[in-house]
Design a protein around this nucleic acid. Structure first.
Lengths: 225, 225
DNA sequence: AGCCGTATAATCGTATGTAATATTCAGGTA
DNA sequence: TACCTGAATATTACATACGATTATACGGCT
């Protein structure tokens, strides 16, 4: 008998939640766009109930904002918001990485490297859509062995909130190669077991996205003015 | 015409959410207890719909866990979970406090002191129920001027997750006076503008709850064994 | 006696209908 | 014109009804 996995049975609510989360992360909906319950329920062929529950959950995750009797709006983050969230990420991720490195196994590192390879492929094909998920996967792979599940899920949630904006930054400032170079260096540091250096580097790495975004926006406003 | 504020109109969903959140924080429901939708809807005199939506939201906040077709269980955190969450808090709160202190006004500090007074009152009356909220209020008052709204809401959410357990620690280890002494010292440091010291101290202060809990549990298991 | 399968009940999940609220826009008035 | 006013419309909020899933109880079988 093959290793059979439990039959995947999902409630509509969780299915809709996952789908909507993905679509928001991929940027299918614009900032501030209203998500109409009936439109979504028609689209998915379900009633409005699971849609409403999915929206509640996404609101608590910070991806959307529900205003009473008005509706669900895709969260629009200011530059300051993004910067702040990146600072939190930098703090948490550098800490968890330092805790993780001493316990990383060969498999952990290989898995991260594998994700990095996929990243290269996406880079070659200019597949921006995949970037966000691969980025998260790579980072989380490095943190896994820290054995801090709560921190990891928090980090993942922060990734979800910021990815749309860091992807924008990557896209407009053409820093995809730089991000990849930094990832490569990060993996090197992990392999060498230099926990402290790696922690500092990942801190720098995360904030570099913020710096690039800032430079880009400054340039934009200069042009606009 | 007096300054009339808009009539507070709340949807049932948000009212139920707030009420349930409070009841969970106050420990009215035991760890792992199942919250039955129909029982709650009867109790509140509403249908199951707003109850379900409230539960979804509380799940995303981490206060409960929803298992498909089984129900909503009040989250039960292991000692390691609590410790991990306290570490995150220590990191975030020391950082945000250091950013806050240079910008604190007299009013900020007075407001914090006022909360501290209320704390003393609760201490005198052994009102453990109030402790959690006052504790949160005091901490958040000190962080307000940092102007980091996202960090603050994250910290608040972490408080919500950990308060039940830190209150247990306070209750069983009789460290309420110590906590209060630490709060007083913390406020002193803020008034003196010693940002770095205050940051380090709040880090220590938060983890001291974890240490007390650890010592208590070790003693318990020694007795039990 | 102990296990298995079926019937039954309890509970959750989803659909649909109704009420409450917000938005839009036509029409009137200064 | 600019600005109200209020009815019509759109959308969300909530309640009720039904269906699906899981847990429990019981009777027959080995």
């Amino acid at each position: 008998m093959t290793t059979l996995q439990p039959i995947k049975r999902q409630t509509l609510t969780s299915a809709v939640t996952e789908s909507l989360r993905k679509r928001i992360l991929l940027g299918e909906f614009a900032d501030g766009q209203q998500l109409r319950q009936e439109a979504l329920s028609n689209e998915y062929g379900v009633s409005r109930v699971p849609v409403r529950e999915a929206l509640r959950q996404l609101e608590a995750e910070g991806l959307i904002q529900i205003i009473d009797h008005k509706g669900a709006l895709v969260s629009k983050l200011s530059f300051e918001d993004v910067q702040e969230l990146l600072e939190i990420r930098a703090m948490l991720e550098s800490s968890v990485l330092m805790a993780s490195i001493p316990r990383q196994t060969q498999e952990d590192l290989d898995l991260a490297e594998q994700t990095l390879k996929a990243f290269e492929l996406a880079l070659a094909e200019h597949d921006v859509k995949q970037w966000g998920e691969l980025n998260s996967r790579f980072h989380l792979a490095l943190y896994r062995s820290a054995d801090r599940p709560n921190t990891l899920s928090l980090i993942e949630s922060l990734h979800n909130k910021t990815d749309r904006y860091t992807r924008m930054q990557i896209l407009f400032t053409h820093t995809m190669e730089q991000a990849h170079a930094e990832h490569t260096r990060l993996l090197q540091l992990c392999r060498s077991g230099a926990a402290k250096e790696a922690g500092e580097f990942v801190h720098f790495h995360i904030l570099s996205a913020g710096r690039a975004l800032e430079a880009y926006l400054k340039g934009q406003s200069a042009v606009a003015a």
